[in-house]
């Protein structure tokens, strides 16, 4: 137990030890200052020249968003058609078939939006070509899209009065060449030297200890797993994701994958402080995010280490905690830590089966995705947090009877309308989706789909409801993890979750960038004695309260029907 706790404390400490210098480095990259990776500049200039892009042309916030949306729409169509025809494309040694149109629709959106919800199993549902040139490609560009969007926000917060917010392509390209690519290479090398496959040969054949012939899938797994975590993507090479022994062979790879998925989201919070030269502001945000993460993590570890009360009542001892769905080599503490970090950070990879976790843990995992801004995904985590800052500033202004101001600009009706729409969008798409799926389950149980509604749920009752709620929560938060008890590869789930994922990705990028761009154009008001300080612990607590009220309470009734009811039913 103590060793397991020491393991996760070491992992978090290592994460911070890397994230803080990475934040300083990222700020230097995007400010255009000298860094040790400046030797990439000729390569970047070559890419820009063949693309016909002049990064000296500065863009306003609308031009940034148009560029972001345009390139993402192209990638979506490309990914969709590659998946539809993957059996006819090269690099398919295992002879895997094409994806069906509804599955390709879901998968293409899922990887485009950095969600990586997988309604297929990687061993049989994708080829080496699509794993490389669709999934791994989208791992890089979707993470870089989020980072580039965040840098636009940084720039809008920095300059006093301007509509020139740098160049989207410059930010996007540097996010790949200066951050994602170099770190991914280092991680992939560590993973491949620890037993993760790096091979283009098809399935291997071996004889098991009981004499069966087993065909084992492999491929260049280490390269994909590196960017899968670094870019907070989460889509695994294998169906079991990082619970698979070839996708996470030992405790060292577990630490490496865990650290890899946290360093950019946490590093970007510190990058904000270095970029704006407001380190105290960044520390306050980091403090709020860390407090939120710990409030989700501690009950989870307590529940997992304590074991399942239903099993305890049967007189069975659980000295290692609740081990159903967990890997013995990781144990309940490292599994609980991974489950919470992967849901607050929006990676969505798993090293244990979330469906088997204790109801308290399921509750905490869902809360992490429902709040979706305690660190959050690459770039987009802080964009979500920014919405709550705007609302907190507005409410604080009303409380003290002053015009709300943030970073020297007045928050007025237009910004508040956008912030409110974005804050309400997240619960809206999750709860409406869950309501529709519950209706279909009850009223159309025998619909003629690949998986009939009557066969969707592995567990009846409260837990079954949690499986559906989790699926839409994971989709809307662009997380991608799943309560894998849900039979989701049919037209209903593929299409409905596809729409939830795409709405949950782009509108929460458009909203904060629009607010920041509009604010950047406003007259700058110098700080005075009456200005609300945004870098104090009081303001941090105010933001935390806003997050708790808006994000958490919106979901409480739905959570009461799922994990909360299940928890109390276990105690009977």
């Amino acid at each position: 137990m103590n060793t397991e706790l020491a393991g996760i404390i070491f992992t978090y400490a290592l994460t911070l030890a890397i994230a803080i210098p990475l934040g300083r480095y990222s700020a230097r990259v995007f400010k255009g200052e000298k860094t040790w990776l400046d030797f990439m500049a000729p390569f970047e200039r070559f890419i820009l020249r063949i693309s016909g892009i002049d990064t000296r042309k500065e863009m306003n916030w609308k031009q940034h968003l148009f560029a972001l949306l345009t390139i993402n729409s192209v990638w979506l169509v490309y990914a969709f058609f590659c998946l539809l025809f993957q059996a006819h494309l090269p690099l398919n040694p295992d002879g895997n078939p094409n994806q069906t149109p509804d599955l390709a629709f879901n998968t293409a959106i899922s990887f485009l939006v950095n969600c990586n919800l997988q309604d297929y199993s990687g061993e049989s549902g994708a080829t080496y070509f699509t794993q490389h040139f669709v999934f791994m490609f989208l791992h890089f560009v979707s993470a870089a899209t989020g980072i580039a969007a965040l840098v636009v926000l940084f720039r809008a917060m920095k300059d006093k009065v301007t509509d020139k917010l740098g160049n989207f392509w410059d930010y996007f390209l540097k996010a790949i060449t200066r951050i994602l690519l170099p770190i991914s290479i280092v991680i992939a090398i560590i993973l491949s030297f620890n037993g993760m496959p790096t091979s283009y040969k098809g399935k291997d054949t071996l004889i098991s200890m009981q004499g069966d012939t087993v065909h084992v899938s492999r491929g260049p797994v280490a390269a994909l797993v590196a960017i899968k975590h670094l870019g907070t993507n989460g889509g695994g090479w294998f169906g079991a994701n990082s619970a698979h022994p070839l996708e996470n062979p030992n405790y060292l790879t577990n630490i490496v994958e865990m650290v890899a998925q946290c360093i950019i989201p946490i590093g970007l919070v510190f990058a904000l402080g270095f970029y704006l030269n407001k380190k105290k502001f960044a520390y306050v945000i980091f403090g709020v995010m860390t407090l939120g993460m710990l409030l989700l993590l501690i009950p989870t570890i307590q529940a997992e280490v304590g074991g399942n009360p239903a099993i305890a009542r049967m007189g069975i001892s659980q000295p290692t905690g609740a081990m159903e769905g967990k890997e013995v080599r990781f144990g309940p503490t490292a599994s609980g830590y991974w489950s919470i970090l992967t849901t607050v950070i929006s990676t969505g990879s798993v090293n244990s089966m979330h469906d088997s976790a204790m109801p308290v843990s399921g509750f905490m995992m869902m809360m992490g995705m429902m709040i979706n801004c305690f660190y959050g995904g690459c770039g987009v985590g802080f964009l979500n947090y920014y919405i709550f800052i705007i609302i907190a500033v507005f409410i604080s202004g009303l409380m003290v009877g002053r015009t709300p101001e943030f970073m020297g600009r007045k928050i007025e009706a237009r910004e508040m309308k956008i912030a409110s729409l974005i804050a309400l969008l997240h619960p809206f798409i999750i709860l409406v989706g869950t309501a529709i799926s519950s209706y279909v389950l009850v009223h159309m149980p025998n619909a003629d789909w690949a998986v009939k509604p009557s066969a969707w749920l592995a567990s009846p009752g409260y837990h079954g409801f949690s499986e559906m709620l989790y699926q839409y929560t994971s989709s809307a938060a662009n997380n991608g993890s799943g309560f894998e008890g849900l039979g989701d590869n049919n037209i209903f789930w593929n299409v409905s979750a596809g729409f939830v994922m795409i709405l949950g990705r782009f509108l929460p990028i458009i909203g904060p960038i629009a607010i920041a761009g509009i604010l950047a154009n406003k007259k700058f008001i110098p700080e005075s004695a009456g200005t609300l300080k945004s870098d104090t612990s009081t303001f941090g607590l105010m933001t935390f309260a806003v997050i708790a009220i808006i994000a958490a309470l919106s979901f409480f009734p739905a959570l009461a029907l799922g994990p909360i009811a299940e928890h109390f039913s276990l105690l009977k």
Partner: peptide
């Protein structure tokens, strides 16, 4: 392959992104 389904999904992509582009203009004037 069900080409009608494929066409519907491509149309859904176009409409969704058209709405995103419209939302950028909408947020400017809201």
């Amino acid at each position: 392959m069900d080409l009608i389904q494929v066409a519907i999904y491509v149309l859904a992509f176009i409409v969704t992104f058209w709405l995103f582009f419209k939302s950028v203009n909408y947020f400017e004037k809201i």
